[in-house]
Amino acid sequence: MLLALETANEWCSVALFDGKAVVAQRQDDRSREQTRLILPMIDAVLGEQGLGVSALQAIAFSRGPGSFSGVRINAAVAQALAWAHDLPVVPVSTLQALAQAAYRQYQLTQVVAVLDARMNEVYAAAYQLDTQGLMQPLEENLKDESGHEQLVAYDQVRLPDEAQRYALVGNGSHLVTQARELAVYTDVHASSEDIARLGYAAFKAGKAVSADQALPVYLRDNAWKKIAEQRAQMTGQQ
């Protein structure tokens, strides 16, 4: 059994996955409530199945990019539970989970997942469906662990070849300059179910890590600073 956590953006979502399907799930779309909600939600899904944390095989979490506080909460809770119960952890890209949600919600098989990063920038990455029904990064864009993920201005989003075959999905999709030329789905949201499916596949493939390696990915180096401070720093560098 795998526990999946998603707090990297607006929603707080927790799921238990048995390798084939989600057997328990809780979700709450109230923004900025993740800190208060996540632990009771974890207790609820475990209680529904009569399980304790020690019965889990692994914990998967949405590692970013996304909201700084949301990503930090996700990583911190995953680390704490894993340390306390000696469990492996599976970090899952938030953008990949968003792409998986596009397949779950609309059966889209080729997408550019886009999240609003504020400050006139977006997080973006291209994915396509594999034979296992999982969204995977395009090989042509894989430079390193997160090389396919972009933090760029609206008009600098790198699109795949034959971009017209791809849909833009996520809350930042309408911001992309090329959006007028492509199908746009702004209502696609990643949930713990998407984290669970991707995380379980990665776990079975031997890609789990120890708790101390379950690190968040922000893409923006100064993400810990307030937005006004980030903007001031960027202005000073110009």
Rank of each mutant, 00 (worst) to 15 (best):
A202I: 03
Q128V: 11
L56S: 00
S191E: 10
R26C: 12
A208P: 02
H174A: 15
L198S: 03
G19V: 00
P137N: 12
V71Y: 05
Q230H: 05
L51A: 02
D155C: 07
V157N: 06
N120R: 14
E6I: 08
L95T: 00
L98W: 04
S192R: 02
A179V: 05
S192M: 04
I38W: 09
V14H: 00
G66I: 03
K225T: 05
Y185T: 08
N222L: 13
V111R: 07
S31F: 06
H148W: 12
R180W: 12
Q178C: 12
A211S: 13
N74P: 03
G64I: 03
Q25T: 00
A84R: 09
Q49T: 02
T109Q: 15
R26S: 11
V169D: 08
V77K: 06
S191L: 12
A102I: 01
L56P: 00
E48G: 02
A21E: 11
Q237D: 13
D194G: 04
I227F: 10
M119E: 12
A214S: 07
L198F: 11
S13L: 02
S62H: 04
A78C: 11
V71M: 07
R36A: 12
P137H: 08
A196Y: 00
Q213P: 09
E48R: 03
R197Q: 13
G70Q: 01
G133T: 00
S93W: 05
M234V: 14
V89T: 07
Q34R: 07
R231W: 10
G199D: 04
A102S: 15
Q150I: 04
A179L: 05
A167C: 14
G170D: 03
E48N: 01
Q230V: 12
V122R: 03
L16P: 01
Q79L: 09
F17P: 00
V14T: 04
L219V: 10
S93E: 09
D86P: 02
A15E: 02
R220H: 05
E162L: 09
A190Y: 06
A205L: 08
S192A: 15
Q27D: 05
V22R: 00
R32Q: 14
S173M: 10
A179E: 01
S173C: 10
L198K: 06
G172K: 01
L51M: 10
L46D: 01
D212Q: 15
T35P: 07
A196N: 03
R180S: 15
L168S: 02
A202N: 04
V92N: 00
N9T: 13
E145N: 14
V184A: 10
E6A: 05
E181Q: 15
F203Y: 14
A126R: 02
A21M: 06
G206I: 08
L168W: 03
A126S: 15
E33N: 13
A228Q: 12
T109V: 15
E149T: 00
M135F: 11
V209D: 05
E6P: 06
V90M: 09
E181D: 14
A44H: 12
V176T: 07
R180H: 14
A101G: 13
P40M: 04
A126H: 07
L81M: 09
L182Q: 12
S31A: 15
W11E: 13
